[in-house]
Nucleic acid binder design. Structure first.
Length: 278
DNA sequence: AGTATAACCTGTCTGC
DNA sequence: TGCAGACAGGTTATAC
């Protein structure tokens, strides 16, 4: 369920709680679904005894960089975990019902909880993690200098429906169903518009709406509809600011027209038929 | 090329 | 209360 703002909120929480701590032990409770490119033994061998050097993020992926020791400066043999939470994954400092992985640090323990078992974990040599899939396949990262209007506009050369394009992580990474819907409303663009039909002004509005919605959602600590929590167990508050998401049949706050919902690519799209014209 | 559907797996909610 | 069906913040494979 987590999209960029939730993953970023989790990243900040983990950085605050765990940075610089040494991993003392690691237990894999669900090997089959979770570990995509390594065995539990390889994971343990690569990471136990190592210090957590950085907690990063790319799109909806979390990146844990571990260092060999304080004395060895060579990047050789340093490893990183790349983790995707998918629909139900959570990283918590207390155990929950569906714990799939336990990372025991010097004075705190991190539990990966994942009811639906869709979560994916990769182990890489740190130096290679960005140049191999899945991170190498991600598109432009919003809220960074790489996010430019020129680059964004170049993505729109397609007849694909704009809503579906926004969810394509190879084009732009980090947006999911909530923030794609909310950004399109903020920009006044109908989700079924072909991407290539957007005028320059519309593209500009959407470019800015995406950044604004993501920024605001991070400030709100993300969206907690159901199971999402910060590592410390706090709820996000952005659900209180939804303009269209899950508001089908309710009046648009801007014009009073009733919000509609349709299905695109198997996902629900919500929009105001008055503020977002075809 | 672009879209729809199902699949992965589990939990939750709605309606009968 | 029980049960079937729909649906969920994500991604991927396969089929029209």
């Amino acid at each position: 369920m987590p999209e960029l703002p939730e993953v970023e909120t989790i990243r900040r929480g983990l950085e605050q709680e765990l940075l610089g701590r040494t991993l003392l032990d690691l237990h894999v409770k669900e090997r089959v679904h979770l570990l995509k490119n390594c065995s539990p033994a390889q994971l343990r061998r690569a990471l136990i005894g190592r210090r957590l050097k950085a907690v990063g993020r790319r799109g909806k992926f979390l990146i844990f960089d571990f260092e060999r020791s304080e004395k060895q400066h060579s990047s050789l043999g340093q490893h990183s975990i790349v983790l995707h939470l998918r629909m139900s994954g959570r990283l918590l400092l207390v155990p929950a019902q569906h714990t799939r992985l336990i990372l025991k640090f010097s004075d705190k323990t991190l539990y990966f909880d994942d009811a639906r078992r869709f979560g994916m974990l990769y182990l890489f040599e740190s130096a290679l993690r960005e140049s191999l899939p899945p991170l190498s396949e991600l598109g432009i990262e919003p809220l960074t200098p790489a996010y430019t209007f020129g680059g964004f506009r170049a993505l729109l050369q397609s007849k694909q429906e704009i809503k579906r394009l926004l969810l394509d992580q190879r084009k732009l990474c980090g947006l999911g169903n909530i923030y794609a819907n909310e950004a399109l409303f903020a920009a006044g663009i109908h989700p079924q518009r072909p991407a290539c039909s957007l005028s320059s002004r519309e593209a500009r509005r959407l470019f800015e709406a995406i950044a604004a919605v993501l920024t605001r959602a991070i400030e709100a600590g993300g969206t907690s509809i159901d199971s999402y929590r910060t590592p410390q167990g706090e709820l996000g508050r952005f659900q209180e600011e939804f303009s269209v998401y899950e508001r089908a049949g309710k009046p648009c706050y801007r014009c009073g027209e009733l919000i509609e919902s349709i299905s695109q690519g198997g996902r629900s799209s919500y929009f105001c038929p008055c503020c977002q014209t075809q």
